[in-house]
């Protein structure tokens, strides 16, 4: 056989392999998804479930109000994300420092991280939302949205601080050595050499925390704040139909799925570079 013929044969075999792979993927998807659908749609309770959770009528009447309420979620997580990015970085820098003068601050930062990561977010929101106004301090805001925002920002700030800290720790000591050797101060070495590399590395876990935060904003509803989930509950409670909750779920997905795709994209690019 000539070289050209062998090459043609190889290409043909490769194509056949690809085709076979695609066929298997399509068939197995059809079997799994079809089976699940058949299981659900032929179940005795399905007509009731369809009416209660997937009513087109209930969706139409509730969706505009839930969408409006969802803007509060969006505003809250956007602001909180910015606060968390800054707060987390400050805490991480404090914890990564070695200057003995800052020991008390480092201790406070460590305790903060432990507590705010360790207590369920829903409890923090509860304590901030009901506890702080109860203190009756003058000059302290009583707006539940603000207080819930504080609670979420502090909780996620603690997570994100640890993410940053891991990133800073992952930049090898030799990078600091090189930065010092070219005549930078320790602060300059951190600012121009260590942090840029650390932040680049932690973008995937940071975005992951943001996806989590975008859903957890729904927890502020326990303070009676009317955001998407609360609005959906109001509809559900008055009509005994849960379709509004499904509508709210779709809205959360509408922000978290794009975020997940961005995350995939960044992670894939990181792998190519590494």
């Amino acid at each position: 056989m000539t070289k050209g013929a062998r090459q043609a044969a190889r290409e043909k075999a490769k194509k056949a392999r690809t085709r076979r792979g695609q066929t298997i993927a399509v068939v197995s998807s059809a079997v799994v998804l079809g089976g699940l659908s058949a299981l659900i749609f032929t179940s005795s309770g399905w007509p009731d479930v369809q009416e209660t959770f997937f009513s087109a009528e209930a969706f139409r009447t509730s969706f505009p109000d839930i969408l409006k309420a969802f803007w509060l979620d969006v505003k809250m997580f956007l602001v909180i994300e910015v606060v968390v990015l800054v707060l987390g970085l400050v805490i991480a820098l404090v914890r990564s420092g070695r200057n003995p003068v800052f020991f008390p601050i480092r201790l406070i930062a460590a305790v903060y991280c432990d507590i705010f990561r360790g207590v369920p977010v829903i409890l923090l929101i509860y304590m901030f939302g009901f506890g702080i106004p109860a203190l009756g301090l003058s000059g302290v805001p009583n707006d539940p949205i603000l207080l819930a925002g504080f609670a979420l920002a502090l909780a996620y700030g603690a997570y994100v601080a640890e993410v940053y800290r891991a990133g800073i720790g992952s930049v090898h000591q030799t990078q600091t050595d090189a930065a010092l050797a070219v005549g930078l101060t320790r602060t300059q070495a951190l600012r121009h050499v260590v942090l840029p590399q650390a932040i680049r590395r932690v973008r995937p876990p940071l975005l992951n925390d943001f996806i989590s935060l975008q859903k957890d904003v729904a927890l502020v509803s326990i303070l009676g704040i009317v955001e998407a989930f609360q609005q959906a509950q109001i509809f559900a409670a008055s009509t005994f139909n849960y379709t509004p909750l499904v509508a709210a779920a779709l809205l959360y997905l509408a922000v978290t799925i794009p975020m997940a795709r961005i995350l995939d994209h960044i992670t894939a690019r990181g792998e190519v570079n590494a």
């Binding site: 030799t174 990078q175 050595d177 090189a178 930065a179 070219v182 005549g183 930078l184 101060t185 300059q188 121009h192 050499v193 840029p196 590399q197 680049r200």
Partner: peptide, 19 residues
């Protein structure tokens, strides 16, 4: 120990610019 996040020229100039 070059700085991987910087271009070659930035590697060379970082020290004299900042330091």
């Amino acid at each position: 120990n070059l700085f991987p996040h910087m271009s070659v020229i930035d590697n060379v100039t970082l020290g004299i610019v900042r330091g």
